[in-house]
């Protein structure tokens, strides 16, 4: 519980129906998007309950972060349903619902794959997109191209062989469930996977960021289960392991040691690698530098052996 970081200056609103598993959009003043049929529920309390469509939702946790003056972010957790931020805009948060694997498996949804860049506007990296919105693939593709509706909620990459780069590929999540039943399903599901343009580590292997590891693992499990026979290859966990190798020579460290101002000549990435190198020299083991394309993760994970 992080009630102390709740920002009292912002009002937020949820849009959509919780019960039907649609996407939520959370808007923040002073510039909520005036377009659309947004349903304001007023200020979300940092704890307690709020009402939506006659149903009461108990807030388990509401976490505010500020990535910059105009980049607030919020993680909202309500009972039985987790809502969290995936994309931050100056005036808008886009939220989605995560659900347990069993619920996704029981949903009548689709896996949508696309590497067409304009199908995922504003997404600069290979991204695994998941939404639980009950949707037809055509609709999902339309939603993807629209700036105002975002479907992503977790990050990751998937490598897909031999699919049309210019057309989203849709694969039913649960082929056994027909469309008629999907209308009744409270847990519609769509998986959206963008392929291509992987960030790569120094050895050329795809690198991915795993911000929400437990959930992402379940998504991988799900995709592997569903698409294992359709040439979807999920990359190994993204790691750049510094196994005792030195990125920097002594002279650079010595130069910085003598004049700290030289450190400002490094790029952010080089600074990360420098710290990793120092950890290595300091006796840390299992140093893993995580490649990131957006802030919000952990740059480096290192372990110190107990002595």
């Amino acid at each position: 519980m992080r009630a102390d970081v709740v920002d009292p200056d912002h009002q937020v609103a949820l849009v959509g129906e919780v019960a039907s598993g649609t996407l939520y959009q959370l808007f923040v003043e002073p510039e909520p998007d005036p377009v659309g049929t947004y349903e304001w529920i007023g200020e979300i309390p940092d704890s307690g309950t709020f009402q939506l469509h006659g149903q009461t939702y108990e807030i388990v946790r509401l976490e505010w972060e500020h990535r910059g003056p105009n980049l607030p972010s919020v993680d909202l957790y309500v009972r039985d349903v987790e809502l969290f931020d995936v994309y931050i805009d100056e005036s808008m948060w886009r939220l989605a619902i995560s659900r347990p694997l069993e619920q996704l498996l029981s949903a009548n949804g689709y896996v949508v794959l696309s590497s067409k860049s304009n199908a995922f506007e504003r997404l600069e990296r290979a991204t695994l997109l998941v939404t639980t919105e009950a949707s037809q693939p055509g609709r999902a593709a339309r939603l993807m191209s629209r700036d105002t509706i975002i479907l992503d909620l977790v990050e990751g990459v998937a490598k897909v062989d031999g699919f049309n780069r210019n057309a989203p590929l849709s694969i039913p999540l649960s082929p056994a469930i027909d469309d008629a039943r999907s209308q009744q399903s409270p847990f519609g599901g769509v998986l959206v996977v963008q392929s291509g343009g992987f960030p790569r580590d120094l050895s050329g292997k795809p690198v991915q960021m795993r911000r929400r590891v437990p959930y992402l693992d379940s998504v991988y499990e799900l995709i592997t289960l569903l698409l294992g026979s359709t040439k979807v290859v999920l990359p190994e966990p993204p790691k750049l392991i510094l196994s005792g190798s030195a990125f920097y020579h002594d002279d650079l460290l010595k130069r910085i040691a003598k004049d700290i101002r030289d450190i400002h000549g490094l790029t952010p990435r080089q600074f990360e690698e420098l710290v990793a190198e120092m950890l290595d020299r300091d006796g840390f083991v299992d140093i893993v530098v995580t490649k990131q394309t957006r802030d919000g993760g952990v740059d480096t994970i290192a372990a110190r052996q107990e002595r």
Partner: peptide, 29 residues
Amino acid sequence: YGYECKKHGPGSPVRVGIVREFAAALRNK
């Protein structure tokens, strides 16, 4: 240990939002 590295210019101190973000990332991991 989880490390976060912020390469900032001398006049650009690390602000509280970055700390919160990092704290959240640590919790996630």
